[in-house]
Design a protein around this nucleic acid. Structure first.
Lengths: 230, 230
DNA sequence: CAGTGGTCTAGACCACGGT
DNA sequence: CCGTGGTCTAGACCACTGT
């Protein structure tokens, strides 16, 4: 009557992997065998092994069975917070200032990356996020009005485009890139740092199906670090 | 006899969220009701809604039910590749050069971060990863011999500590940080860039249970970008 | 072809936590 | 207290893919 949980099966499997009872490169027993051995149903074993496979600690293929990878590619998850919440989470007081907001034809490379016709009219929004009144993050964003019907109703003087879009334009997918870039003259002026300072930069494009919603470049003041548990 | 899959339930739920059939802040029907409506079992609905909750698109609490969050905090996963594979994945030819390898007492702040007694003996390994013979990434690592029994058998002249540890010291958890740092004189010399150039930097600490395994600082040559799908 | 993981079902009990 | 999600079971069929 021991209540075997998928979590306990997962822990036991982890133990065997670390302990090399299941050696790297080797196959592990079938779900049915494990279920019999551990005294639980196959579904329970399946749930446990599936999670380990999603974390990169096992490789599963039909017919071929389940193996311990020689070079596990670990996966980690990170959150994409609203910038204001990121600031609050660091124990600082958030602030916000709209810098500019204007319709522009999309520059060539941007139009290409968004799969739009050249010179499609987009709304460019630039804003500065503050933490304890000090510059925290510069938001340089292009929004596709065709994907965001209510865009005209948005007032980016009081709410950041970052936050408004999270609430009003759910995305289905996209890509996000992290890099280090030297501060441009504009970056330096807005963030209050020196030109060429090393700035942590996030570039993100999001889509609703195949329609582009927005492209944004977030440039953080010197010293910013993005932390995640793995 | 329609084969309703958890994936199709997930898609339908996503559609209702995007469509605001389930408005932000509102509760959605119970699992049992949805199962009846969609003509599948409750377990199938559970799997679908659980995944959406893990992605940050729903909030679930016992008794309180399931809600659409007003400010969804989207989660994304990224892979932690072996550096050599990262290079190969970019279509470049990887190279590797050991710079130094020596036992040192742990510096104070490091010992503290690793929860070790000050001056605990650690192995410091510095190495350079190359892509098409050009500097790609500088690896500055401290390894705790107490957590890695076979450490003496490792030959870091032929295999990087990065890769060897992945194969020989599975970790149970840790933390990873991303930032932009100005190139130090040492960084610049090894990476062939100018001092104070903006460098993408990854800091990672890993643990086996409560025992620290390694602390590493990866400094990438200018222009590096870490890309992830969301 | 046949073995393995992937998934669905119906029913059941349990844990948490609002009321 | 009691409604809701969390999970387990036994059995079944299916989809993929290596041999």
């Amino acid at each position: 009557m021991s209540p075997i949980t998928w979590q306990s099966v997962k822990d036991e499997a982890l133990r065997r992997i670390r302990n090399r009872d299941w050696p790297p490169g080797g196959q592990i027993p079938h779900e049915a065998d494990l279920a019999a051995e551990l005294g639980c149903s196959r579904v329970t074993v399946n749930r446990a092994l599936r999670e380990l496979a999603e974390a990169g600690l096992l490789e599963r293929r039909r017919k071929a069975g389940t193996r311990v990878p020689l070079n596990p590619v670990r996966k980690a998850t990170f959150e994409i917070p609203i910038i204001r919440h990121d600031i609050e989470g660091r124990g600082l007081t958030p602030g916000y200032r709209l810098i500019s907001q204007q319709m522009h034809p999309a520059p060539g490379t941007l139009a290409q990356r968004l799969h739009l016709a050249p010179d499609t009219a987009l709304l460019q929004v630039m804003a500065l996020h503050l933490a304890n009144d000090a510059p925290f993050c510069l938001e340089d964003r292009w929004i596709n009005p065709a994907s965001v019907p209510d865009l005209a109703a948005a007032d980016f003087t009081t709410i950041s485009a970052n936050e408004w879009l999270v609430q009003n334009a759910p995305f289905s997918g996209g890509e996000i890139g992290f890099s280090a870039t030297p501060a441009t003259a504009s970056d330096a002026a807005h963030l209050g740092c020196a030109p060429n300072d090393a700035l942590f930069t996030v570039t993100r494009i999001t889509w609703a199906g195949t329609a582009p919603i927005t492209s944004v470049r977030l440039t953080y003041a010197p010293g910013y670090q993005m932390l995640t548990l793995i």
